[in-house]
Simulated assay, not measured.
Amino acid sequence: MKSRQDERFVRTEFASVIGTPPYAATPIRSRSGLKRTAFFPTISAIATDFKLHNTYLKPDYFTDPVEEYWAIRRTAGLLDVTGEEIVEVKGPDAEALLDDIMPRDVRKMKDGHCYYSVLLHDHGGIVEDGILVRFNKELFWWIGGPGNSEECLYANGVARNVSIESFNDRIHVASLQGPKSREILQQVCDADLTPVPFYGMIQAKVCGVPVTITRTGYTAELGYDIYVDVAHGAAFFADLWSTVQKAGGALCGSKSLGIRRIEAAILNFGQDFDWQHTPVEIGLGWMVSETKAPFKSQKALMAAEAHPYKQKLAGLRFDGREIPLIGDRIVVDGKERGVITSATGSPALDCPLAIGWLDIEAATPGTSVTVAFGDRSATATVVEMPFLDPERKLSKG
């Protein structure tokens, strides 16, 4: 498969002042700066190309994105996913606050479990999607990305007995993903991982370091996200990488993660959707509880549902070998009907795939479309998503 050169982006090298642990303390809570993660000593010995995510430099790839993809699919890939920001919600009103700004029923959560959910604006639009971790009724973590989650939680918690605090510069996140991830992690974990369910949580020691582990990830494979204090991060990551390497796993970067997340139709906030969209509009209507207590955006969501949406996110499978770019236009019967938001070449399916917004009447599976590549075009077919492992059996194994 062939990727087109996107002329809107160019590779550049530049000198810059970069923050390193321990990070400069500041009372200002807005995100700022350009920083290395706590895992940088190990990563920088191999990686040369980085991307910026939520103020942190993250490896784009180490060797080859496709090789790293296959490590995630066949053994295990170790990733630095720092920048997935932990916001602690703590206090007697923590459960009530979260239940009021989420469509899922937080009161039904069990301690030691996680939800995939969204935070909502009053108008029903999405603040951000992420993982909610419940330690107990008065202590939760919201784990998102570069969205405005901390501000949303703070604004809605002002009149409540609750504290909101970002741990973006205090806790960094490693992710071990792949069919052998449990087997490998168990070698250096002092707790039994076998009973930890899909979307479960446990606190333990890994490589002798206290951590929080959730059975979650961005790959739809069996996997674990591991949250570690910055002070222990460098030694922890080096020791974990040594174990992964001996087991035949690989260090993996953002590009391999991106391939797998598109195959799995895991949506990316700020790319596939944003604050303009409701959970129903992007295919997450199953999140909206019909039995929970009234919540802030409930009436707005009900009103939105009463008016049919004009577009939906759809999956496209391409006939040729050329991978489209974000922003390429989707044409049906000579009329522009949508736009590409994510695209990749799938090593497993051996064809290009894309996610895009498409007019409802053109989004029926089996519909043939054309995607304009500047002065060229390619044909594709609308297909169901996820593209691979539609029943999510791999992650639940």
Results as ranks from 00 to 15, higher is better:
residue 219 T to P: 01
residue 175 S to M: 14
residue 382 V to I: 15
residue 387 F to N: 07
residue 354 A to P: 00
residue 126 I to L: 00
residue 149 S to A: 15
residue 328 D to M: 09
residue 13 E to H: 07
residue 127 V to W: 01
residue 25 A to V: 08
residue 104 R to F: 09
residue 290 E to Y: 01
residue 156 N to S: 11
residue 305 E to P: 01
residue 200 G to F: 07
residue 104 R to W: 05
residue 117 S to I: 02
residue 275 W to Q: 13
residue 303 A to Y: 12
residue 165 E to L: 12
residue 58 K to M: 15
residue 117 S to W: 03
residue 82 T to Q: 04
residue 195 P to S: 02
residue 364 T to G: 07
residue 245 Q to H: 14
residue 296 K to I: 09
residue 74 R to C: 08
residue 366 G to D: 10
residue 394 L to N: 11
residue 145 G to I: 02
residue 50 F to S: 02
residue 348 A to P: 04
residue 360 I to K: 13
residue 378 A to Q: 07
residue 373 F to L: 12
residue 47 A to Q: 06
residue 239 D to T: 04
residue 159 A to I: 09
residue 243 T to N: 07
residue 222 L to I: 11
residue 237 F to S: 04
residue 173 V to A: 06
residue 277 H to S: 01
residue 174 A to K: 05
residue 117 S to K: 05
residue 72 I to N: 05
residue 63 T to W: 14
residue 276 Q to G: 06
residue 128 E to Q: 01
residue 275 W to A: 07
residue 68 E to L: 09
residue 325 L to Y: 07
residue 13 E to L: 14
residue 355 I to A: 08
residue 200 G to K: 08
residue 28 I to G: 06
residue 144 G to K: 01
residue 40 F to M: 10
residue 34 L to S: 05
residue 310 K to W: 03
residue 66 V to W: 04
residue 378 A to S: 14
residue 166 S to K: 03
residue 20 T to W: 11
residue 273 F to W: 00
residue 282 I to F: 01
residue 267 L to D: 03
residue 278 T to F: 01
residue 372 A to F: 08
residue 297 S to I: 00
residue 369 V to M: 03
residue 380 A to S: 07
residue 35 K to C: 15
residue 83 G to E: 13
residue 304 A to I: 01
residue 216 T to I: 08
residue 382 V to E: 04
residue 297 S to K: 02
residue 337 R to D: 00
residue 222 L to G: 05
residue 180 K to L: 09
residue 296 K to S: 14
residue 377 S to I: 10
residue 241 W to G: 02
residue 170 R to W: 10
residue 372 A to N: 04
residue 3 S to D: 13
residue 324 P to A: 12
residue 40 F to V: 03
residue 38 A to T: 09
residue 367 T to R: 13
residue 265 A to M: 07
residue 258 G to W: 08
residue 382 V to M: 08
residue 269 F to L: 00
residue 98 L to Y: 04
residue 225 D to Q: 11
residue 71 A to F: 12
residue 102 M to F: 00
residue 182 R to P: 05
residue 203 Q to Y: 08
residue 388 L to R: 12
residue 360 I to Q: 11
residue 179 P to H: 05
residue 184 I to R: 04
residue 103 P to M: 00
residue 172 H to W: 12
residue 165 E to R: 15
residue 76 A to T: 03
residue 365 P to L: 12
residue 32 S to T: 11
residue 8 R to D: 13
residue 303 A to D: 14
residue 66 V to I: 14
residue 352 P to L: 10
residue 377 S to R: 11
residue 284 L to G: 02
residue 228 V to R: 03
residue 209 V to K: 11
residue 61 Y to P: 02
residue 382 V to Q: 05
residue 61 Y to W: 15
residue 31 R to S: 07
residue 151 E to P: 02
residue 46 I to Y: 14
residue 169 D to E: 15
residue 105 D to G: 05
residue 277 H to R: 00
residue 26 T to F: 06
residue 263 E to R: 08
residue 299 K to E: 15
residue 95 E to T: 13
residue 375 D to Q: 13
residue 307 H to V: 14
residue 118 V to T: 01
residue 168 N to W: 15
residue 175 S to Q: 06
residue 386 P to H: 13
residue 147 G to T: 00
residue 259 I to E: 08
residue 144 G to S: 10
residue 95 E to A: 12
residue 289 S to W: 01
residue 71 A to I: 12
residue 11 R to N: 15
residue 397 G to K: 11
residue 166 S to I: 06
residue 333 D to P: 07
